[in-house]
């Protein structure tokens, strides 16, 4: 089965404000989309709509293939050591060799540290580790570079490139520049209602 992510003519309303309308998107394997726009324009809402977590005000979203989401919500128990918190998701995702990912993201020295003591960048890397261990074809990344240092930003870009190279789809919402493999630029302000 080929991964696919399609959004047709979606509109998003938060409260009584229409954020955007008439937005369509079609992603085939290998596609990377960079969602841009100033704060509050609806980038995160779009990501959540694509993830199926938020109902669009109108329009339709269809996704073929597993979805992986990284946003500002960590979904790791703050009181547990990182290794244990990640292990829960590894078990749930049926991931048999998490070690490679941990190595890749340089998380191994942090496995005994309770999640609440991790820095912003370390938490972000932990969330990325969970994403990688899921082995899903569609990545939805909401501000993946926030809090990361230059080197870590480079490795995120490399991870996304590798993912798309293998036929994955990546939709990345980021207000800062991120190097994606031949990205489609999607400026949400163009669809502002």
């Amino acid at each position: 089965m080929q991964a696919q992510l399609t959004a047709i003519d979606i509109a998003c309303r938060r409260g009584d404000r229409l954020l955007f309308k008439g937005l369509s998107l079609a992603c085939a394997p290998g596609d990377a989309v960079h969602v841009t726009g100033p704060n509050g324009v609806g980038k995160s809402s779009l990501i959540r709509i694509l993830a199926g977590l938020l109902r669009p005000f109108s329009g339709e979203v269809t996704a073929e293939g597993g979805l992986g989401l990284v946003d500002e919500r960590l979904a790791l128990d703050p009181n547990q050591p990182l290794g244990k918190a990640l292990a829960f998701w590894e078990r749930l995702d049926g991931c048999s060799e998490p070690g490679r990912t941990l190595d890749l993201l340089q998380l191994e020295p942090l496995l005994d540290v309770p999640v609440r003591f991790l820095s912003t960048g370390q938490k972000k890397r932990a969330a990325l580790a969970r994403l990688l261990n899921r082995h899903c074809p569609i990545w939805l990344l909401d501000e993946p570079l926030n809090g990361l240092d230059g080197q870590a930003q480079k490795s995120v870009e490399a991870l996304v490139a590798q993912h798309c190279d293998r036929g994955g789809i990546a939709v990345v919402a980021s207000h800062q520049p991120i190097a994606l493999p031949s990205p489609t630029l999607l400026g949400i302000e163009d669809y502002a209602a």
């Binding site: 199926g52 977590l53 979805l67 919500r73 960590l74 979904a75 998701w89 749930l92 995702d93 969970r130």
Partner: peptide
């Protein structure tokens, strides 16, 4: 509350739970 705020149910939803 904690799990709602941490987005645990969001991640579970994506995994078909």
């Amino acid at each position: 509350t904690d799990d709602v705020e941490a987005g645990v149910f969001d991640q579970l939803h994506l995994r078909g739970v």
